[in-house]
Amino acid sequence: MDETLGKETVALHPKKRKKQPITWSLIKNQNQLIWMSVPLLLYIVLFAYVPVWGWTMAFQNYRPGRSFSEQEWVGFKQFKFLFTDDNFLRVLRNTLAMGMINLVLGFVTAIVLALLLNEIRKMFWKRIVQTISYLPHFLSWIIVTGIVATSLSINDGIVNIVLMKLHIIKDPILWLSEGKYFWGIVGASHVWKEVGWNTIIYLAAIASIDPALYEAAEIDGASRYKKMRFVTLPGIKATIVILLIMSVGHVLEAGFEVQYLLGNGLVMDWSETIDIFVLKYGLAQGNYSLATAGGIFKTVVSVTLLLMANWTAKRLGEERLL
């Protein structure tokens, strides 16, 4: 009781507003707001924190259909299997590489496309380009990989035909049989599918830049290129940094469907990601524990990367997430 009284006296000095301490009167004042937030809080607890309980599976030899007390505990056995397998380093490398390629390519292409779209004066053309470029986003990966495989085929695949007509290559190349092309193919497919969709948020950010800035720049004699460089880009810098931090956390989500559907024995050394490894040795074997261990590993790495990116942004004096 004394404590709350003490805090109340502090609250009476509004000049030093560091942090408003939580008091009964404050709670009473905001009680409607608090009640309103309860369902959301419950939702988060239920769907984000309760499932974490399932992580216990990673330390068991989990068998479905048995109750929790009947499960066999095995300590770090699943993690040991994961980290000591010869293939693990390889799939980790593939995952990171493809994740980075997707991240960088996705970012650069989306920003460039947004900047270019912003320069189009005719609304009609802008709309058309935008619509066409984001339509592939709505296709599922199974269809996209079908399109990719067909266009890379040596029998009338469009990529080989174009390259041969341009005399860049002499004979058709079997793109999907060479490991060295695989990462590139995955990166390019991602760009094709997602670039239009990713530009939307940048276009929105660009739209919120004060037009007075452009006018001022024009009066100062800035060219279109210079306006892009000194007005538009700094204007959307905060958006870029925030999105970058968020995507860094997803670097290990290099994808599963693309690699699974486009991969084959010949490119296995380049195509398999952590998700595929977990599917093969975890889920397909009925070893849910190993699959969980793989999931935990990915979460830990993702959270670490996210915090690191956030910290770096803070050090650089940029906008940040946390």
Binding site: G265, L266, M268, K280, Y281, A284, N287
Partner: peptide, 23 residues
């Protein structure tokens, strides 16, 4: 038997064949 060493070995053997034989 799901998750047994034998099954893991079988998966591994299949993986090796899929990788090396086409090559």
């Amino acid at each position: 038997v799901e998750g047994s060493d034998a099954k893991i070995a079988n998966t591994k053997l299949n993986e090796l064949s899929t990788k090396y034989l086409p090559k």
